[in-house]
Each structure stands twice: as C-alpha cells, then as structure tokens.
Amino acid sequence: MEKAIKKYFPIFALPTLLAFTIGFILPFVLGVYLSFCEFSTVTDAKFVGLKNYIRIWGDSTFIHSLWFTALFTIVSVLAINILAFAVAMLLTKGIKGTNIFRTVFFMPNLIGGIILGYIWQLILNGVLATIGRTLTYSSSYGFWGLIILMCWQQVGYMMIIYIAGIQNIPGDLIEAAKIDGANNRQLLRHVTLPMVMPSITICSFLTLTNSFKLFDQNLALTAGEPSNKSEMLALNIYNTFYGRTGWEGVGQAKAVVFFILVAIIAIVQLRATRQKEVQA
C-alpha cells in the first residue's frame, strides 16, 4: 500500500501542489519581495531595502489601527465565545424547537461580510438617528457596531462547534459527577469545560484570527470613518496600498508585519489552549 502511494505520489499531489504554488507560495514570496521595493503597480518594482519598514512607524494611522484592532480582538473573542457557549448550553438541554433555533442562529454566518456590514449600517444608523447621531459620528460607535455585527455573524458558527463538543461528553461522566454530588456550577466548571476544551481551542483560534484580520465588515460598516479612527489593520493596509500614491511598498511592508503578528498570536494562543485539553 505504502509503496503504491509512494509510486503515484507525484501524480496525486502535483495538481494541488501546483495550485498551491501558483495561488499561495508565489504571491506570498512576491509579496515579501515587494515589501522591500518601491512601485506604483506590482509589475514595475524597484528594490529599496528596508526603507518601507522604517516608513511604517512614521505613519500614525498604523499604530492607531493596531491598538484599535487589538482592543477589538480582545472584546470580540470574549463576547463571541461566551455568547456562543451560552447558546450552545441552552440548545443542548433538549428544549422544544432546538433544531429551528440552531438553524436560525447559524444563518447570519451564511451572509457575506460586505452585505452584513451594509445591513447593520442601516439598522444602527436608524437606531442612532433617534439621538441625532450616525455610526461614523465617533469611533466608539463604530467599535461597538463592529462588535455587535461580529457577534451576530459568528455566534451561530461557534455555537455549532460548541454543541458538537458538548454532545461528545460521555453521559456516564456527567452521571458519575452527579452521583458524587456535584451541583450545576461544579458540573460546568470541572466536567463540561475541560471536556469541551478542544472546541474552545478551535473556536478561540477562529474568532481570534477572524477578528484580527477583519476587513469586509469594517469596510462596509464604517470604512474607517471618522478620520481613520475606526480603521482596523487590514483596512489600513488596503488604504495605504491603494489610497496613497507612493506608499504602495509601505502598504506591502505593513502586510508582512501583519502576517508575522497574526502568526505569532495564533501560535501562542494554540499552545496556551492546547495545554488545557484533557482526555476523558
């Protein structure tokens, strides 16, 4: 068997490897190269060394969007996971209409970010109009608008993962705990939570990276207004690359920095939650 796999390995792997190279490795390498260049379109780059990386730190909008994104990520990861877990707990209690509720909660996830952004822009502007304000009046409105939007979109998805995790807890484990006299709180703290740790790992990974890389929702909801104060990192990179003549290389350098940041955060987070996982 293994011999056969070895023999035909190139044939099976080649198409995907090729696609992977064209669609991922090449653009990535080109992207890193471009971050050391000055250019107006990607086909006429001129090597300038580390200049772009130095110019990043002269751009105050980048630092601001970095903090804005970090804060947003913390709040949204906590909010989404707590809500999703709570909903998952409710919907595994066997109440009537569970399936309908699960479907309804999951649905927002099927709508694209741009459309969601515009829908929520209308809703939130409608609400804020009662106090004579709009979403882009100040960046804190944009911030909380984004949190609401992201919760609405992501809670259903994370809920499905948590439900799968909760349903996988062996019934005898819970029964044994109950016989030992564990109350609901202890059951949650010492049985359910450790047992769904793998789900928590994957959910916190997904929400963390999604929030950090958020782009479409940000673009559609506030587009960074007012004065780039609600601009997140991905949008900041986009605006630097496309919005400012002569700053294309800087945008590219920001993207590389961004990639390294996301990678570090994701690895640290995976390590941290993995350690807490237990075997039944």
């Binding site: 293994e2 796999i5 070895k6 390995f9 792997a13 995907t16 490897l17 696609a19 992977f20 064209i22 669609g23 991922f24 653009p27």
Partner: peptide, 27 residues
C-alpha cells in the same frame, strides 16, 4: 517516513482548501 508522508498529504489537502479561490483566478 510515515509521519512525513502524512504531513505532506495533509499539507496538500489544506492547500487545496486554501487555494480554492486563488487557483481559479490563476486559470
């Protein structure tokens, strides 16, 4: 060797997922 093989296989599997969009524009 087995480990390496499974690593490569899973990498290509992941690749096919990741390049779902990228591949089509390339074509």
């Amino acid at each position: 060797k087995k480990k390496l093989l499974s690593a490569v296989l899973s990498a290509t599997m992941l690749a096919s997922v990741l390049t779902g969009c990228g591949g089509s524009t390339g074509e």
